[in-house]
């Protein structure tokens, strides 16, 4: 008897999660794809900002350094939810004002692009600090040797500094990536149909809250586990040539 109820409960849940209507599975997957798109874009944008930010903080002039200090301090001090609200509404407002000033009408801003932009700025502040620490951890002799052989600055960055710092940066960057995937959920508040918002809609339409949020949790978990494997490989590659225990030194 109990078994029968359980089984019928399970089959109900499976029906709700089915990929074809009336199941909501495809909605959840669409939400996941949007979440991953935003996370990828934001992480990539964060890396670019972080690389320039780290170099600016390490080698820039006093004004560059001050501006970057303000950027990383403010972004890291304010809760991400608040930042998302500020950056999203201020950003879209500014773009619309600019567009109207130039004689165009209001522009429709794609949710994915806006999400990438907002989270990318947040990620950039953290990535700046991760990469700055990693660059500082590169033994100075490696950079000096490249200079001594006449390597131009950009080649030196590409061929020596960045590869040498990757081993130090990977654990921090893996953290940032996982934070990026989960921060996409915060975008639900400005109405992006990423995974969390899709889940909420499915749940409130069917009243099957437990089923849908459990399913969403499982999807986030799968993303995390997959990321762990990928970053494990990246770290192994980035640390090539470095024995795991350097002869007991350090």
């Amino acid at each position: 008897m109990v078994l029968l109820i359980d089984l019928s409960g399970l089959s109900d849940a499976l029906e709700l999660l089915s990929l074809s209507p009336p199941g909501w599975g495809s909605n959840l997957l669409r939400g996941l794809v949007h979440s991953l798109q935003i996370a990828f874009g934001a992480f990539g944008m964060g890396l670019v900002i972080g690389l320039f930010g780290a170099y600016g903080k390490l080698y820039g002039g006093p004004i560059t350094r001050d501006l970057l200090a303000i950027y990383t301090t403010v972004i890291r001090a304010v809760p991400e939810l608040v930042l998302i609200l500020i950056l999203y509404y201020v950003g879209t407002d500014l773009i619309n004002k600019a567009s109207q000033a130039m004689g165009y009408g209001r522009v429709e801003i794609s949710g994915v692009i806006a999400g990438i932009w907002v989270l990318g700025i947040v990620q950039g502040a953290y990535a700046t600090e991760v990469l700055r620490g990693a660059i500082k951890a590169v033994p100075p002799g490696q950079i000096e040797a490249a200079r001594a052989f006449g390597m131009p600055t950009l080649t030196l960055m590409r061929r020596v500094t960045i590869p040498a710092m990757m081993g130090f940066a990977t654990p921090g960057l893996a953290n940032l990536w996982l934070i990026a995937t989960k921060d996409t959920a915060l975008l639900a508040i400005v109405g992006f149909n990423e995974l969390t918002l899709e889940t909420r809609q499915a749940a409130s339409s069917t009243r099957a809250y437990f089923t849908f949020f459990l399913a969403a949790g499982a999807l986030y978990l799968i993303v995390t586990l997959g990321s762990g494997v990928v970053f494990g490989r990246i770290e192994k590659w980035a640390r090539r040539g470095q024995p795991s225990l350097r002869g007991g030194g350090r």
């Binding site: 002799g141 040797a145 006449g150 020596v160």
Partner: peptide, 29 residues
Amino acid sequence: ERIRSRLGMVFQSFNLWTHRTLLENVTEV
């Protein structure tokens, strides 16, 4: 940079690039 590349320097602490094999270290420049 051109003049530096004509002055082959050898350092006290070697300063080989640790993420490259010996062959890659020698072909890098």
